[in-house]
């Protein structure tokens, strides 16, 4: 019977394959009609503009100008000579170097302490996470007034209560950037804590038992032998995420210092904002954006490479 069927249909084999191609075309069209709008918007609003930023950075265009010409690396050459760029770049690095370690360490400490006991876990987690949901801009004003205010701020009130010298924290070039950093740390600790808590949950309890049998039963030994190595990938991950977030510091600068005093808090994104949207120097702003993008990409790449190398922990 099977042979019969074969013979009957052999003659129509070519029309069958044409029909199959028809269905393939129809299904491809369906898939693209589902994905197409998103793909188009992705190019229009994200990938296209990102590519445009790179292209613009090689031109001399200013917003509203009728003409533009290629100047090659001209913007980048200007950047290297630009004292303001050097300052803002350095400030950004200082800001990251200050906030990232503290925010990660405090997040780790909070996670370890929360996980080391059973009572109050949910409460502490909630409270530490609260700043993550806060709108940063108004909170910046809270810090400005309640903490850093030269006379009624808590910090100076406390200092003077102990007879210590006080400062105008946000107007002092030595402390303004760090003051902004404190706000950044306050907001990001909770997120890091939750990420570390998730990492801690992933450590099999057997490992602690095994370590205890091997003689590592003190808190420090447990941390050194089991927790810390097992948290390796999570830590790298948290470090990168925090670094990228710190790199994007902007809201607090605009709200509290406007880059001042004397450019002490002028950071990369703030300079980019000013060049691009206040001075309308689109090309130069694009070049600054490229630097910013490059840093984020390098950080991400670094994390991917390092995590790959450390996969034996996972």
């Amino acid at each position: 019977m099977a042979e019969l069927a074969t013979a009957r249909h052999r003659s129509s084999a070519s029309s069958a394959s044409r029909r199959l191609i028809g269905r393939w075309v129809a299904e491809t069209a369906t898939a693209w009609s589902l994905a197409g709008p998103a793909v188009a918007l992705m190019w229009l609003l994200l990938l296209g503009p990102a590519a445009a930023v790179v292209l613009l950075s090689f031109t001399d265009w200013s917003f509203g100008q009728p003409t533009m010409s290629w100047i090659g690396l001209g913007n980048f050459r200007e950047m290297v000579a630009d004292q303001l760029f050097r300052t803002s770049f350095l400030n950004t690095l200082v800001y990251v170097a200050f906030t990232m370690p503290l925010s990660v360490l405090l997040g780790l400490g909070a996670a370890l302490l929360i996980e080391s006991g059973t009572s109050g876990r949910g409460f502490y987690r909630t409270v530490f996470f609260l700043p993550v949901t806060a709108t940063l801009l108004p909170m910046a004003f809270v810090f400005q007034f309640a903490y850093f205010h030269p006379t009624v701020g808590i910090i100076n009130q406390t200092l003077s209560a102990f007879g210590l010298p006080t400062r105008d924290w946000l107007r002092d070039p030595d402390t303004a950037l760090l003051a902004l950093g404190v706000i950044g740390i306050w907001q990001s600790v909770g997120l890091n804590m939750v990420l570390f808590l998730a990492g801690l949950k992933g450590i099999p309890k057997d490992l602690y038992d095994a370590a205890a049998l091997d003689g590592a039963d003190g808190a420090w030994e447990r941390f050194r032998r089991v927790t810390w190595p097992m948290l390796g990938p999570a830590t790298l991950f948290v470090l990168t995420v925090t670094a990228i977030k710190s790199f994007q510091v902007f809201d607090t600068v605009i709200a509290l210092t406007q880059g001042g005093p004397g450019n002490a808090t002028n950071v990369l994104l703030f300079q980019m904002y000013q060049e691009g949207f206040s001075f309308l120097r689109s090309a130069y702003a694009s070049a600054l954006t490229c630097v910013f993008l490059l840093f984020v990409l390098v950080l991400t790449l670094l994390q991917v490479v390092l995590v790959d190398r450390k996969t034996h922990y996972g």
């Binding site: 249909h9 084999a13 029909r19 199959l20 269905r23």
Partner: peptide, 19 residues
Amino acid sequence: EHQDSGTIAIAGSSVDMKA
């Protein structure tokens, strides 16, 4: 799924084009 070649017929008529 799609066959690479051959035909399926239901009640005497080919359904290869049909979803």
